[in-house]
């Protein structure tokens, strides 16, 4: 028995779990009822899911943000700048990103132990944020970003939304940045490019791409690609994301201004 890594501190769920099956789900290829070649259900190919973003929800954190795009829900808290725990002297500050999935965030239960998936998400968000933060102003200090994925509907969308939430939380925390980081995801379905895919759409696509940028400066901070995309498709994805990032930037700006006026 795998008793050695049995977690005694938490209430352990059953060893196996199954996503609930609903009557109207059965007999369909995906919950969308969508087949290759059909146009996108619910929204246009270049549309993203509506975003709800609010800064400053977690009171004990220095800065925080909550983002919700339909069935993706992410909370983000920023602590610091605080003293670095490492023993080496560093002229620049450090950025530390931790991502946690809530046990109920996915269709299958997530064990509350760090696995490879949350680390790779954290690396992506770290990479997207790093060029935006003025770490040269914070010698010997660390900024800690904790991201909790409350509900996960497509990991690409979660990485993009997590980056946006983290950047908003950093601005709320009053950490000096070159600009706000905005990220958007895209996937290719057939010949079309669909922006901000949800889980089912990402599963059906041949490749996905996440694009993070600072629209205020017109610079790209991170691009990552998964699956199969031709160079031409990748460039078209990036162009589509770039355009949409400007719209998301307006949403973030509105949330931050609203928060700044309240405090």
């Amino acid at each position: 028995m795998a008793q050695s890594n049995f977690d005694r501190r938490r209430i352990n769920g059953p060893e196996e779990s199954f996503p609930p099956t609903f009557e109207d789900d059965e007999g369909e290829p995906s919950s969308l009822g969508w087949r290759l070649g059909q146009p996108r259900q619910g929204r246009a190919a270049s549309d993203i899911r509506p975003i709800f973003l609010k800064a400053g929800l977690i009171t004990q954190a220095n800065g925080s943000a909550y983002i919700e795009t339909q069935r993706s829900k992410i909370a983000c808290a920023v602590y610091g700048p605080r003293q670095s725990k490492s023993t080496v002297y560093s002229e620049n500050g450090r950025l530390n990103v931790e991502v946690k999935f809530a046990p109920f965030s996915c269709t299958r239960r997530k064990v509350p132990i760090r696995d490879a998936e949350d680390r790779s998400v954290a690396v992506q968000i770290h990479q997207a944020l790093l060029p935006s933060i003025r770490l040269e102003l914070l010698p010997k200090s660390t900024i800690d970003i904790f991201i909790t994925i409350i509900e996960n509907d497509g990991i690409d969308g979660c990485i993009a939304a997590g980056s946006v939430a983290a950047s908003t939380a950093l601005a709320d925390a009053g950490i000096e940045m070159l600009g706000l980081v905005i990220a958007c995801s895209a996937c290719t379905i057939g010949k079309e490019i669909w922006l901000d895919p949800n889980n089912d759409e990402a599963q059906a696509s041949s490749g996905t791409l996440i694009y993070a940028s600072m629209p205020a400066l017109g610079t790209v901070t991170n691009v990552s690609q998964n699956g199969r995309l031709t160079p031409d498709e990748a460039i078209r994805c990036m162009e589509a994301c770039q355009e949409r990032c400007i719209d998301i930037h307006a949403v973030v700006a509105e949330a931050l201004l609203e928060n700044a006026q309240q405090s």
């Binding site: 003025r134 009053g174 000096e176 205020a216 201004l257």
Partner: peptide, 16 residues
Amino acid sequence: TGVYAREGAVRASLTG
């Protein structure tokens, strides 16, 4: 503090 210069333009680095 709170501002920086980049490519000849002065930009904010904080909300305020």
